Structures are given as structure tokens and as C-alpha cells.
Computed example of a mutant assay.
Amino acid sequence: MEIRHLKLIREVAETKSLTKAKDALFLSQSALSHQLKEIESQLGTQLFHRVNKQLILTNAGKMVLESAERILKELEKTERSIKKYVSGTSGTLRLATQCYTCYHWLPSLMADFKKEFPNVEIEIFHNNNADVEDQILDGSIDLAIIYENSNRQNVDYHELFRDEVFAIVPKNHPWAKKSYVEATDFADQNVIIHSYPLESVSLFSQVLIPEGISPRKVMQVQVTEAVVELVKAGMGVNVMAKWILEPYLKNEDLELIPVTKRGIHRTWAAITLKDENRPQYLENFIHHLRCNIGELCCCVN
């Protein structure tokens, strides 16, 4: 039995007439009559009684109608959902970021985005130990925000902004009077990082690993407030962007020191799967990223 058969049963059951049903189904009466005979022959039973020029459902017909209404209702619901998805007005956006410190800007960005796309749900994935580019490729997430990329095939990189990271130390730290610090300066320091692996941390990938320098100790702390308090207490040093630290610099307890004479610079990008049929809400979310975090980060560097 095909979908067209189910639609025929539903329409004839409602109108009780092939003549009336033909207008709704855009078929001739003879074509409908042929289809009805085809269904009844396939099922081996009558689906309608002919009573006073009306077609009245038999018990078998009622069973088919019950299934037809359920199936057609579900198909119509799916069709509406697909149309909304294709038009970019409805869907789910699964988001991850390579850096834990990015999440503080997310609530305000989501509020702006929701005004434009109220029917798009945003799911946030916090596990950044996994390779987010692999997650994009296997379909686990739809968009990731990263600052290091490998130019994978089938991944689109949408540049957002550039920033610089600085060593943060308390005012009384020996580095406080330096114009910049070098890789060797970190050899006798406790270095606080947000997450492993070390290869994903800019300080290590751009400075320490190429120079073959290992700090005295590496500590993982994922909460920015806790990192700042540990640095202020002299428990270690951290390397972070100024835009992330901006709320904590007002009390003047911290000093920012460039790392190496050339500095450590990062290019942030939103990455998505290469897809010509990418939903409109995904394109607009990237635009919101540029407008929200892009302007925020550029204006404080």
C-alpha cells in the first residue's frame, strides 16, 4: 500500500464520494475508482459499502483509515519540519569551543540570536578534549570555535578575529618589570592551563615545545576566576588573552607581560562542515559571532 492509497482512503472516508474526493486529490473519478479497486484487490476485502450513492467504511476500511490518519499526520509533521529546516527558520545548532574561556560571552550572544531565530535550539558541548574538527566531520557538532586549525578537507573555516595572549602575574612578581618574557623564563615556573593536551595550548605549541622548555609544574584549572585567584596568590603563572582578563584587571592586582618579543598571536575561526545547503540560521550564527565576540575581543586588544 502506498501513500497515495492512504490519502485516497482518508479523503473518500471524509467526503463519502469519489466525485467529491477527486477535486481534493487532483485526479479524475475513473483514476480514483481504479486506485480503490487496486487497494481492495491487494487487501482481499472491501473497504467501503455502497449505500445510497455514498461510500461508507467497512470495518476493514475503518482499520485502514486509522492507520492512514496516523501515518499521514506523522508524514505531514515531518514535511513541515523539513521545510522549516531548509528555510533556515527551525532546527538545532550543536556548538563546541576549543577554549573554555569562550563560554562567558555565550549567554548574551544566544539572547541576540534567539530574537532572530526563536525556533532554533542551541546545544552546547563542553568536552574540548576531543578534536573538534573530527567532531565536525563525523556530524557530532554543527559548529566549533577554534584558534588553531589544520585546514582539513571538507571543513569550512570562517575567520572571526585575531588576538594576542599575555603572561599574567601579580604586581610583585619578578616578571612585572620585564618588557617581555622568553621561553626560558618559564622553566622555573608553575604554569596554569585551562585544558590538555599541551599541544593545544598556544604557549606550548608556539613557544615552549619548539624551544624544548618544560615548566617546573603544569596545573589544569578550567575556571577563569580560579586561575586569576591562583595567579594573584603567587601559585603560578598563566597565559591568557586580554579580552578574557578584562573584568579582572580593574583592581590593578595583575600585570600583563608579552610572551617573546614578537608575541603570541592567534586567529580565531568558526568551523562548519562544507555544505552548499547549510541552513540559514547557521550562517547567521557565524555573523552573530563576528558581531559579538569579534568586536568585543578586538576592542580590548
Score class of each variant (00 low, 15 high):
G61Q: 00
K62G: 01
K62W: 01
M63D: 15
L65W: 04
L65Q: 02
E66Y: 01
S67T: 09
S67G: 06
A68T: 02
A68N: 01
A68M: 02
E69N: 12
E69P: 06
E69T: 08
R70G: 08
R70P: 03
R70Y: 13
R70S: 15
I71C: 06
I71Y: 05
I71Q: 07
I71K: 07
L72F: 04
L72Y: 04
L72C: 07
L72M: 06
L72R: 02
K73D: 11
K73I: 11
K73L: 14
L75C: 04
L75Y: 03
L75W: 01
E76Y: 04
K77T: 12
K77G: 07
T78I: 15
T78S: 15
R80K: 15
R80Q: 11
R80I: 14
R80N: 09
S81Y: 07
S81R: 14
I82C: 02
Y85D: 09
Y85M: 12
V86D: 00
V86S: 00
V86R: 00
V86Y: 00
S87L: 00
S87W: 00
S87H: 00
S87M: 01
S87A: 08
S87Q: 01
G88C: 06
T89D: 10
S90H: 10
S90M: 08
T92F: 03
T92I: 10
R94T: 06
R94I: 09
L95M: 10
L95S: 07
T97S: 09
T97P: 04
T97H: 10
Q98W: 08
C99E: 12
T101C: 14
T101S: 14
C102Y: 14
Y103H: 04
H104S: 11
W105A: 14
W105S: 14
L106F: 15
L106S: 10
L106C: 09
L106E: 12
P107D: 06
S108Q: 04
S108D: 03
L109E: 06
L109T: 14
M110H: 10
M110N: 08
M110K: 14
A111L: 14
A111G: 10
A111Y: 15
A111C: 12
D112Y: 02
D112L: 11
D112G: 09
D112N: 09
D112T: 09
F113Y: 10
F113E: 04
F113K: 07
K114E: 11
K114T: 14
K114S: 15
K115W: 02
K115N: 09
K115C: 06
K115V: 05
E116C: 01
E116I: 03
F117S: 02
F117N: 02
